[in-house]
Design a protein around this nucleic acid. Structure first.
Lengths: 154, 154
DNA sequence: TTTTGTGCAAACAATTTGCATGAGA
DNA sequence: TCTCATGCAAATTGTTTGCACAAAA
């Protein structure tokens, strides 16, 4: 199931740095790079378990760090108290719509956000490097059956 | 040093809920409501220490929760692994420019961001409630003397 | 005097680290 | 073989909770 393309990119990254290409690294990379997205470390270990792999938690975290270092995966913090990881896409900037009822995450894009940031930041003598936009609300399916959310984003 | 206005609003909040108005609550509220902003729980205890107060950490956290519940203070998560708190302002939406060199935080506003969000979100059947925009980069004073950042925002 | 808070220490959850052993190059 | 990874458990960090004692209403 490995997308040969990204899988190979991770191998190349490891080889480049003279880091051993271990089976656990490949399995975790395969899992994460082909995941729909937004997995926590716990999600990763759970999914590994489903596939019959029982890697140490430390190994999972260390491999996640490697994947982030390779640029193939990006780390996200939705303010839940833990981190999530998702495959890096070529898409320049995608933003997140998080449903406070079901927790689902939808994405959207708009180049204008970037323009606004660049202009506003520069006006304050600030040179922007990266940015993140998080939106909380309710998704279509959850609308009409409201239920308390957990953490606030504001 | 208490801004009588906000200090009284917190007292009113407590009274309204029949919660005791204790000295530690007033001191912490005074500190936070008159702070320049973005204090962590640790910052708060440190500043309390400077003023000769030695409140338990738990008390600090519990009072922060109360202040957030009162709406006088808002909780922020900049992905540092802990939370920060700042006095709530009337200003509808202010966004943060964080300098990756010195950590300073500048704010900016732009109503257009909100419009873009509303439109993009609705197009996906999502009704936005709140949003946050974080920007990382370098501030004017740090430009020219670059140095590594810590945590990534992306 | 009854309720709720406070301080301390223990409990927690996510993540990191140290170290003996085991697998890649 | 030599280096680096793995797995486990212990350590850390930020935050929460339980409980005996103390202060507000």
């Amino acid at each position: 199931m490995a997308d040969a393309d990204v899988g190979d990119r991770f191998r190349a990254f490891l080889r480049e740095r003279n880091l051993p290409i271990t089976s656990q690294r490949l399995v975790i990379a395969d899992l994460l790079l082909n995941a729909p997205g937004h997995l926590s470390a716990e999600d990763v270990t759970a999914q590994l378990g489903e596939k019959g792999h029982k890697f140490g938690l430390a190994t999972v975290y260390r491999t996640l760090d490697l994947l982030v270092a390779s640029g193939l995966v990006v780390e996200r913090d939705f303010g839940e108290g833990f981190r999530r990881y998702e495959p890096a896409r070529e898409v320049p900037h995608h933003y997140h719509l998080t449903c406070t009822v079901c927790g689902s995450v939808t994405e959207f894009f708009d180049e204008r956000v970037e323009d606004i940031i660049r202009i506003s930041a520069r006006a304050r003598g600030f040179v922007p490097a990266k940015h993140r936009l998080l939106v909380q609300g309710t998704c279509r399916t959850c609308r009409g059956a409201p239920h308390g959310s957990t953490r606030s984003v504001s």
